[in-house]
Design a protein around this nucleic acid. Structure first.
Lengths: 242, 242
DNA sequence: CCCCTAAAGGTTGCATTGACTTTAAATCGT
DNA sequence: ACGATTTAAAGTCAATGCAACCTTTAGGGG
């Protein structure tokens, strides 16, 4: 047997939502060293007898007060470079969570302040993050963008019932582009089992009332909703993210 | 602080190759308890000071004798259910490796026999695997199938130089379908920076000589090579895999 | 020399897409 | 009351992409 060392395992959560047409991520302010006072992704140690998914759900509930079973939650990747945590060998399993605009999150159990922060400024370096959390955030964003193409997760951002314009706003916020409303409607309504009509309508201050939908049973989106053309070009210019 | 427990971290490798037109995976025979004598994925403990990727590369070299830097290697997912290893809390980071048909692998450091096994019979339950390795294998296969659509990894299965027919054989073996040679050629030659012509040709017993290519610098495949139509239908029938 | 084989390239008809236009259904201002 | 305004929803159309099929090319062998 070769050299082993004590290892700690944590989960870190990248919790996305849409606020005011912009993609936001939940950050906490660290209440202890290392990186005291720095912004960081919420997360914590995996406990005895707990699966990784259970640990992620628990941390989600602790940080946001929300029941994670209603949110979309999926594992992204595991980070375990020896130097990523100055306290010793800590490997962390990163999770991606998507949900509708949520109440201002309550402070976590460590009495750390939690807040929503717009994603792009954070990745632009305006809000420095603790540990390797900026890398984790960047990869989680790319995962989320990719997931919108092939799955119906976008609906996880929308409180039900929602309109097609609500759904389009999700795609625009996550992909960072503007989509043609008419073509978008054609695609999502054609996709099988994506949307179920409720028969009701939402009346706003102005304009024709919009039909209301809820999520259909489909998980995979067929045909996929590819970001191409304008979308691809807009993201090439933002390729510094990779 | 809540209950913690000692945790061990391992990497497990799903190493795929194509042999005789069929997708094969490298399995070892366990040389100790638990699951003594059972087939399992190669893997081992992450050592002190080692990144996860380094641990995967090292295990790959130990099990196959090959230099992993020439193979494609990527992280798939981490498995950490409390009951997955009877020895205690072991979480494992699964890696996917793709390479050309390799020499019969040498026995690993634990003097365990290593062999290539066709993937579909294993997933069909004909070769029971240790731990949760069948789940890991299933998810790695799905990842590999998906990767063929959007990236140029298929070329990692082909020793250079290779023909377009060689490349098509990879897609057919991994996706489990038959592709139209003409349409396949059009797609892969259109894709930018995927293939570089060598100017040479391979002459077989019969037929027109095939042009030889090597990998181009592109990693992302644009436009993607989607499995649709016949491919999608063939995989619905194999959907028991999910 | 002709046939066989596999590679390479071409043709065609259908489905999808992006850009744009038109119609529909509500509120608001005068 | 009624048209202006606003947004949703539906339609049009040319260009593109693709699967299926067909033709030509370049080797070897009888």
């Amino acid at each position: 047997m070769h050299e082993r060392e004590p290892v700690a395992v944590t989960v870190d959560l990248v919790i996305f939502t849409i606020r005011g047409g912009q993609l936001h991520v939940l950050l906490i302010e660290r209440g202890k060293e290392p990186f005291l006072g720095r912004a960081a992704l919420p997360g914590g140690y995996v406990r005895k007898g707990e699966t990784l998914d259970e640990a992620a759900l628990r941390e989600l509930a602790e940080e946001t007060g929300l029941d994670g079973r209603r949110l979309h939650l999926e594992q992204v990747r595991t980070y375990g470079d020896p130097g990523r945590d100055p306290r010793g060998r800590v490997i962390t399993v990163a999770y991606l969570a998507l949900g509708p605009d949520m109440p201002v999150p309550m402070a976590g159990t460590d009495a750390r302040a939690a807040r929503w922060e717009a994603v792009l400024p954070v990745l632009g370096g305006e809000v420095p993050l603790a540990f390797d959390h900026e890398v984790i955030l960047r990869e989680a964003l790319e995962r989320a963008r990719s997931q919108l193409e092939y799955t119906t997760v976008a609906a996880a951002f929308c409180p039900e019932p929602f309109t097609i314009a609500d759904l389009r706003e999700v795609y625009e916020a996550v992909w960072g582009v503007v989509l043609d409303p008419s073509n978008f409607r054609r695609k999502v309504t054609r996709a099988e089992q994506f949307l179920e009509t409720t028969g009701e309508r939402r009346i706003l201050d102005a304009g024709r009332p919009a039909a209301l939908y809820r999520r259909g049973p489909a998980w995979l989106l067929s045909p996929p909703l590819l970001r191409a053309g304008e979308v691809a070009r807009a993201q090439v210019s933002a390729a510094s993210l990779r």
